[in-house]
């Protein structure tokens, strides 16, 4: 059986604007991924725990409240703490350009702002998860 790509889509923090997260979750499903949707108001610990239990390849975080610089590093820390440093972490939402380098530095590979085509995210995941040639 072909290996399925599993993606966790979560909204850390308080903000309830889940339109983007839901549209992305649905698009990823339509791209053939198995999407585990955890919904709103997730703490970093809850997200990391779900990522571990579900053994996902990708963790997608949606933050529109501006709290990304506090929340995303905490999620990343919690993932690393349980040995999941290899999981691809993506962030979507309203992320000012000036915060991008700092997020990249902690290992967030993809950052997708408003206006991103969902195919762009799908392609990005496929590219990042492609098995190395060696």
């Amino acid at each position: 059986m072909k290996r399925k790509i599993r993606v966790l889509v979560a909204k850390p923090g308080l903000d309830g604007h889940d339109r983007g997260a839901k549209v992305v979750a649905r698009s990823l499903r339509d791209a053939g991924f198995e999407v585990i949707y955890t919904g709103i108001r997730q703490t970093p610990a809850m997200i990391a725990e779900a990522a571990l239990q579900e053994d996902v390849d990708v963790v997608g975080l949606s933050v529109l409240s501006g709290a990304h610089m506090a929340l995303v590093p905490k999620v990343k820390e919690a993932l690393v703490a349980q040995g999941m440093d290899d999981v691809l972490v993506l962030v979507g939402g309203i992320i000012p350009n000036e915060d991008v380098p700092a997020l990249n530095a902690i290992g967030v590979k993809g950052i997708f702002g408003p206006g991103t085509a969902t195919q762009e995210i799908v392609d990005f995941i496929h590219k990042e998860l492609a098995e190395p040639a060696a």
């Binding site: 399925k4 979750a25 649905r26 990823l28 499903r29 339509d30 791209a31 053939g32 991924f33 198995e34 999407v35 585990i36 949707y37 955890t38 919904g39 703490t43 610990a45 809850m46 725990e49 779900a50 239990q53 579900e54």
Partner: peptide
């Protein structure tokens, strides 16, 4: 989904009370 082969698994949303408990393990399966 029979069309894409993907799946949207949302049951964890309703099991949030069980978060953070080492005596529980939840797995979503398509």
């Amino acid at each position: 989904s029979p069309f894409s082969g993907g799946a949207l698994l949302g049951d964890r949303v309703r099991m949030r009370d069980l978060a953070g408990d080492a005596g529980v393990f939840i797995r979503s399966m398509a």
